[in-house]
Design a protein around this nucleic acid. Structure first.
Lengths: 135, 135
DNA sequence: TATTATTTGCAAAAAATTAGCAATTATGCT
DNA sequence: AGCATAATTGCTAATTTTTTGCAAATAATA
């Protein structure tokens, strides 16, 4: 879906500022606020910091964007996408997405706890293929 | 291990302030900085906020304490413990720990990506048993 | 119990985030 | 296309959160 449509579907006006933020997240995959700020300051130098804050917060609330929170790292933002797992390379820092079925593990939890599992968020610390082969 | 020993093993003096912070985390299981601050202000009213910050940071670095970062929630702290999964009740907010083997899923990732998996952090959104039965 | 290097508490600085408001702009309607 | 209007922006200032510097206090050691 185009970013313009995405915004309109959530009753947000399709301003150039918002489109720029969405484009940036799309390009980066995962970006910290600092990343977003730096990249945008080149593409769109007049876009103010408070606009970035305001819009990321709005988009989080409207579920257009989600937070990726990794221990010992700054928070990242990403465009909302299908359920996936994050692979965080401990060597180069890169974050890859990976799709994986987690039903088995959810069922196991339900069976053993009596809780109902609604959703999950998984992170794996890895050494990525590229870093492995570079050694 | 006693908290005193724990600190000494990491070349940290066993001050009453530090012991109070560790006790608080132990009692709470998972506590935000705000939680820690509130609870401590009762137990130990003269313990200053900067001491809390300084010590949590030190203990994170020394791996005595770890961060629990959940999307759309404040960061939590917990005493370092054996590998476990967090079950976050979407109704009451409670965080439970759960031990589960994740080897299968790690192997699957390794097979499909060529990455080497070192460790993992998993969160599950749940409705906990208590909230389920209260409905 | 005396010595010393650490640690604490306070106050002040720095960094991060949010709020208020006039000027601007995207959208929907003629 | 041009207008009206409500939403949005960019600015500056206010808050909130986190870190720092330093004198006084304290835990660990001999």
């Amino acid at each position: 879906m185009s970013h313009i449509k995405l915004l309109k579907n959530h009753t947000l006006k399709a301003t150039p500022q918002r489109l720029c933020i969405l484009d940036t997240l799309q390009e980066c995959g995962h970006a910290t606020l600092e990343d977003v700020q730096k990249i945008i300051s080149k593409k769109f130098p007049t876009l103010s910091l408070s606009t970035i804050y305001r819009n990321l917060n709005e988009m989080l609330q409207k579920d257009i964007v989600s937070e990726v929170k990794i221990a010992n790292k700054k928070d990242y933002f990403e465009l909302k996408k299908d359920k996936h797992v994050h692979l965080v390379c401990q060597n180069c820092g890169k974050i890859e997405d990976f799709e994986i079925a987690t039903d088995d593990i959810s069922k196991q939890i339900e069976a053993q706890t009596g809780d109902k599992v609604l959703n999950d968020t998984l992170y794996f610390d890895v050494i990525c293929k590229d870093c492995l082969s570079a050694k």
